[in-house]
């Protein structure tokens, strides 16, 4: 029996699902090995019976929470897809301000937002802040290769391997000139690998879209910042893009988006 797979989107650009839609001919292989029962971007059919639920997007409203809990109760396996789902992603940047403040700025004091559940937003949450997540496919956007690795692993009955080491490992394998040496500020040393260091390899700094690693050694990070004339404030500011929750009030970094057994 083929595994039944359903895709769901919450607050996101749906770009990670687009990565999957863009598998093009390989989509035919995908539907050979699993039965896709719901995927808004490429089909109109929908079924509420599925083994694997793949969730893209962040959770913004009570109505999202309710919907996500319902999905979780139906799925044997739940996968968080892409940064919005795994870490809260860009959507979480708004948690720096109060909900009222954000609403005011985006919608003005328009009456439509009042008593309308669509506009009833709370502080942004990653998927695992609402329901347990079995597997994470990280990134903004996700890597198609990693998606394929996870899906084939699950189809073969194997636990997918998601790297627990930093981007530096892949960056070195690509023989890049270290961006710190070029005076740039790269989050690669504290970010989970698995993207094949695509940004540094193409000259852009790592923005940490795959989540901050478990227990990065803060002292060590401070050391590096000092050595390259960079500040902790700057690092925090940069990390807010994908890792709002990585910095607690005590300025301790914690892992964002990862299974508990890592």
């Amino acid at each position: 029996m083929k595994l039944r797979v359903a895709f769901f989107d919450f607050a996101s650009c749906e770009g990670c699902q687009l990565q999957i839609a863009n598998l093009e001919e390989e989509i035919l292989d995908l539907i050979e090995i699993v039965e896709v029962v719901s995927f808004r971007e490429i089909m109109k059919e929908h079924s509420d019976e599925y083994d694997i639920a793949i969730i893209e997007g962040s959770i913004m409203r009570p109505m999202d929470e309710k919907r996500l809990r319902d999905i979780r109760s139906r799925a044997k396996t739940l996968i968080a897809l892409g940064a919005c789902a795994t870490t809260g992603g860009i959507n979480k940047m708004r948690n720096q301000r109060s909900v009222e403040d954000v609403k005011e700025e985006v919608y003005g004091s328009d009456k439509i937002t009042k008593d309308n559940e669509f506009f009833n937003v709370f502080q942004t949450k990653a998927v695992d802040e609402v329901v347990p997540v079995d597997y994470y496919i990280h990134g903004c956007p996700i890597s198609r290769d990693e998606f394929k690795r996870v899906i084939t692993a699950l189809a073969l009955g194997k636990k997918p391997v998601i790297p627990t080491y930093p981007v530096c490992v892949e960056c070195k394998k690509n023989e890049n000139v270290c961006l710190f040496e070029l005076g740039k500020f790269c989050l690669g040393p504290i970010t989970r690998a698995g993207c094949n260091a695509i940004c540094p390899t193409n000259g852009s700094v790592c923005e940490g879209c795959r989540g901050i690693l478990k227990k990065p050694q803060v002292e060590c990070v401070m050391d590096i910042l000092e050595r390259y004339n960079l500040t902790y404030e700057e690092m925090k500011r940069r990390s807010t893009m994908f890792n709002m929750s990585a910095f607690s009030a005590k300025d301790e970094m914690t892992m964002v988006g990862g299974s508990k057994d890592e």
Binding site: I33, K148, T152, C168, Q217, E219
Partner: peptide, 28 residues
């Protein structure tokens, strides 16, 4: 002060350790 990033071993001419992984294409 070590991040455990593994860079020192990645660039080393006398580091020989390896891992092995199986990968299967989407057609299984």
């Amino acid at each position: 002060r070590c991040m455990g990033c593994g860079s020192c071993t990645m660039v080393c001419p006398t580091c020989f350790c390896y891992d092995v992984e199986d990968e299967v294409s989407l057609n299984l």
